[in-house]
C-alpha cells in the first residue's frame, strides 16, 4: 500500500464530515418538516395525521396514500400567507438597502483608518455581540416606550411637546433590524475595502479622475463582491426574522416568521406551519445560491 493511500483515507473521511453534518442536522429534520407539511391537522399527540408507525412494518407505507398538497394549496388561496411573504420581502429589501447606506460609509471609514485604529474599530463593531441579542432588543423597547429614554430626551430638548409613539411601529422594527444586522453588513464590506490597493486610487487620480470619480469608477466596482456578500448575509436572515418584528413592530401586518409562529403555537396547525416553512425555504434558495457564487468568485479573485 502506497503512502498516498494511507493518507488519503482520513482525508476522505474529513471530506465526508460536512456532508454528514448536513444530512443529520438539515436534511433529516427537513424531511420531517416536509412530511408534516403534507399531512392533515388532527387533535391528537402529535397534532397531525397520518403518523408513520414503523412497528407495523410494511403496512406503515399505506399511510403515504394519505399525504396531500392541501396545505400548500391553502398557502396560495389564503392571502394571509402571500401577504406575509410579501411583507417579509419588502422589509428585508428595505432593511438591506438602509444597512448598505449606513454600513458602506462606516466600512469605508474603517478601512481608511491607520492600521492600529482599524483593530479598535473592528472591536467596537463586534462588541455588541457580547450581550445577548434578546437583551439588546428589550433594551430598545425600554428606550422607545412611551416614557422611555428617547421621548424623555426629545421632551427635555423641546423638540416635541408630547411623547411620540415609537414602539409597535414599522420605524421601531426597522431600527431594531438595522441595529442588529449592521455588523453583518460592515464586516464583509470592510474585508473587501481594506484589501483594496491604495495605488489604484492614486493611478485613477493620476489619470485625471477626481476623488469622487475615482470612488465610483474604481473603489465601488471593486467592492461589489463585498456589497453582495453583506447584502445577502443580511437579506436572508431578515426574511425569516421573527423576534424583532414581534417585539418592536405593530401587530397589524405580519412577517412570515410571525405567521409561522402563530400557526405552530397559537393555532397548533403544524401541517400548515410546516408548509409555510418549506415554501419560505424554497423562496430563499435562489439568494443562497447567489451568495455562494459571489463568495466563490471572491475567493478566486483573492487567490
Amino acid at each position: 500500500m502506497s503512502a498516498r493511500r494511507i493518507f488519503a483515507r482520513p482525508a476522505r473521511l474529513a471530506a465526508i464530515a460536512p456532508y454528514l453534518w448536513m444530512v443529520l442536522f438539515f436534511l433529516v429534520p427537513f424531511g420531517f418538516v416536509l412530511k408534516i407539511s403534507l399531512s392533515q391537522t388532527a387533535i391528537a399527540q402529535p397534532p397531525y395525521t397520518p403518523v408513520f408507525d414503523f412497528t407495523e412494518g410494511r403496512a406503515a407505507l399505506a399511510a403515504f396514500a394519505q399525504l396531500s398538497f392541501d396545505n400548500f394549496k391553502l398557502l396560495i388561496s389564503d392571502n394571509l400567507y402571500i401577504l406575509s411573504y410579501l411583507r417579509s420581502l419588502v422589509v428585508a429589501v428595505t432593511s438591506t438597502l438602509i444597512l448598505l447606506l449606513i454600513g458602506y460609509p462606516i466600512a469605508y471609514g474603517m478601512a481608511r483608518l491607520p492600521q492600529r485604529w482599524q483593530a479598535v474599530a473592528m472591536m467596537l463593531v463586534i462588541v455588541p455581540f457580547w450581550t445577548s441579542f434578546l437583551i439588546r432588543i428589550y433594551a430598545w423597547i425600554n428606550i422607545l416606550q412611551h416614557d422611555g429614554l428617547l421621548n424623555q430626551i426629545l421632551l427635555a430638548l423641546h423638540i416635541v411637546s408630547a411623547p411620540v409613539v415609537w414602539l409597535s411601529t414599522d420605524s421601531a422594527m426597522y431600527l431594531g433590524i438595522v441595529y442588529s444586522y449592521l455588523p453583518f453588513m460592515i464586516l464583509p464590506l470592510y474585508a473587501t475595502l481594506s484589501k483594496m490597493d491604495a495605488s489604484l486610487l492614486e493611478a485613477a487620480g493620476d489619470l485625471g479622475a477626481s476623488p469622487l470619480q475615482a470612488f465610483w469608477l474604481v473603489t465601488f466596482p471593486l467592492s461589489l463582491p463585498g456589497v453582495g456578500a453583506g447584502a445577502l448575509l443580511c437579506f436572508i436572515p431578515i426574511v425569516g426574522e421573527f423576534v424583532i418584528p414581534d417585539l418592536l413592530a405593530g401587530s397589524n401586518s405580519l412577517m412570515i416568521g410571525q405567521t409561522l409562529w402563530l400557526e405552530f403555537f397559537t393555532n397548533k396547525d403544524w401541517p400548515v406551519a410546516s408548509a409555510a416553512a418549506v415554501a419560505l425555504l424554497l423562496l430563499l434558495v435562489p439568494p443562497l445560491v447567489l451568495y455562494d457564487r459571489l463568495q466563490r468568485r471572491q475567493l478566486e479573485a483573492g487567490g
Binding site: D197, S199, L200, E202, A203, A204, G205, D206, L207, G208, A209, S210, V218, P221, L222, A301
Partner: peptide, 20 residues
C-alpha cells in the same frame, strides 16, 4: 496642484492596473 489636474502621468511600480 492636485494629481488629476497635472499634465504629468506616472507609471507605478506595481503597475496599479484596474483589475476590473
Amino acid at each position: 496642484v492636485l494629481p488629476h489636474e497635472r499634465p504629468v502621468n506616472m507609471m507605478f511600480q506595481n503597475y496599479a492596473l484596474f483589475p476590473h
